[in-house]
C-alpha cells in the first residue's frame, strides 16, 4: 500500500535537491539564505514523519519553523537568473508543439481525480492500494509524476534536470510566499491551543440569538469578507473566522456540513479580496500594468460583482449546508 508519508518524503527530497542546486547558483545574490530556507523546509518535511507518529520530539521542528520564518521574513531569500527559454523561443516552441502542450497539464488533475474517486476503492489482498484518508494527496502526487512523465514524453525531453531547474525557477520566484498557507494553518492550531476559538465562540454566542441560523451564516460570510478587506488576504482571515464562528457555531452547534460551510466560507472571503487595495497583487498591480490613471479602476469593475456574490454565498450555505 502506498503511504502518504512516502509522498511527503518525495516533496521534501525535491526541496532538498532544489536547495542543493541553489547553493551552487552564483547568479543568485542571496544563495546562502535561499539554500537554508528551502533546505530546511525539505528536511522538515522528512523529519515531520517521525513527529506525526510520535517517535521524535516536535520541539526541534518548532525551532526550524521559526528559523524559516526569520530567513523568509527578513528578506534573506533571493532568486537566481533562471536557465530557461526567452519569449521568442517560447513562441516558436508553442507553434511547434501546439495544443499538445495542454496534455501533460491536464494529466495532473485527471490522475488526481481518478485516484480520489476510483482507485481509493481498489484493494489488493485486503489492503487498500492508497493509504486510507490520503487518496487526494497521493492522487495529486501520482498525477504530478504522471504529468511529468507525459510531458517529457510529449516534449521529447530526456534530461530530468530540465524540469527540475524549471521548477526551481518557479519556486524561487514564488519565494517564501509558498510557505504562507501552511504557516497560517499552524497559526490556526496555535489559536486553538491557546483558547482563542473558545473565547471568540463565547462572544459570538452572547451576540447571536440562539439558533438564528441565517444570522450566524451571514456573520461568518460577512466576517470573512470584512477581515479579508482589512488584511488583504482571505487565507489570513480563514483561521480567525473559522475558529470564531465557522467551526463552533455553524458546524458543531448547528450541525452544518463542514465541507460546504468551509469551502463556501473561503469563497465569501474572496469576495472581500475583489474589493480591497490591500490585495495589491490582484487589484493595484494590474492597474499599474495597464497604465490606468485611476488605480482603483479594477476594484470599481469588481465591487458590483462581489456584493451580490457574497449574498449568493450566504444563501448557498444557508440552504445547502444544513
Amino acid at each position: 500500500m502506498i503511504q502518504s508519508e512516502w509522498f511527503f518524503w518525495l516533496v521534501g527530497g525535491v526541496f532538498l535537491l532544489m536547495a542543493l542546486q541553489m547553493s551552487v547558483d552564483r547568479s543568485n545574490p542571496k544563495r546562502l539564505g535561499s539554500t537554508v530556507f528551502w533546505g530546511l523546509l525539505g528536511a522538515c518535511f522528512i523529519y515531520s514523519s517521525w513527529v506525526t507518529d510520535k517517535t521524535a520530539p516536535a520541539e526541534p521542528l518548532g525551532v526550524a519553523v521559526l528559523v524559516m520564518i526569520c530567513v523568509g521574513g527578513f528578506g534573506l531569500t533571493g532568486k537566481g537568473v533562471p536557465r530557461t527559454t526567452d519569449e521568442k523561443e517560447r513562441t516558436a516552441l508553442a507553434a511547434r508543439w501546439g495544443n499538445k502542450l495542454f496534455l501533460p497539464a491536464l494529466t495532473v488533475p485527471l490522475v488526481a481525480v481518478v485516484c480520489a474517486t476510483l482507485v481509493d476503492k481498489v484493494r489488493i489482498g485486503g489492503e487498500p492500494v492508497l493509504e486510507d484518508g490520503s487518496e487526494t494527496i497521493l492522487g495529486l502526487g501520482l498525477g504530478a509524476l504522471a504529468g511529468l512523465g507525459v510531458g517529457m514524453w510529449v516534449l521529447r525531453e530526456r534530461r530530468i534536470s530540465v524540469p527540475v531547474h524549471a521548477g526551481r525557477g518557479l519556486l524561487e520566484s514564488m519565494g517564501w510566499a509558498l510557505l504562507l498557507p501552511q504557516l497560517l494553518a499552524v497559526l490556526g492550531a496555535i489559536f486553538q491551543e491557546a483558547g482563542v476559538g473558545t473565547q471568540v465562540g463565547k462572544i459570538t454566542e452572547s451576540v447571536l440569538p440562539d439558533g438564528q441560523r441565517l444570522a450566524a451564516v451571514a456573520l461568518y460570510c460577512v466576517g470573512m469578507a470584512v477581515f479579508t478587506l482589512i488584511m488583504g488576504n482571505a487565507f489570513a482571515a480563514f483561521p480567525v473566522m473559522t475558529a470564531a464562528v465557522g467551526w463552533p457555531v455553524l458546524i458543531e452547534q448547528m450541525d452544518g456540513n463542514p465541507a460546504a460551510v468551509l469551502a463556501i466560507g473561503m469563497l465569501a472571503g474572496f469576495c472581500g479580496t475583489l474589493c480591497t487595495p490591500m490585495a495589491a497583487n490582484f487589484n493595484l498591480v494590474p492597474a499599474a500594468l495597464l497604465e490606468l490613471k485611476d488605480q482603483y479602476g479594477p476594484i470599481k469593475a469588481q465591487v458590483p460583482t462581489a456584493i451580490p456574490l457574497l449574498g449568493c454565498n450566504i444563501a448557498l450555505i444557508y440552504f445547502f449546508a444544513f
Binding site: 518525495l10 519553523v65 495529486l140 504530478a144 510531458g151 524549471a166 521548477g167 518557479l170 496555535i190
Partner: peptide, 28 residues
C-alpha cells in the same frame, strides 16, 4: 509550532507540480 507544521504539510504539496508546469512554460 512543530506538531501543527507536521500535520499541515499537505498544504504545501502543490509544489510537487512545479517541475511539470515549469517544463511546459519553458516550452511555450
Amino acid at each position: 509550532f512543530g506538531d501543527s507544521f507536521a500535520s499541515s504539510r499537505s498544504v504545501t504539496i502543490f509544489a510537487i507540480t512545479l517541475p511539470v508546469i515549469g517544463l511546459l512554460e519553458r516550452n511555450g
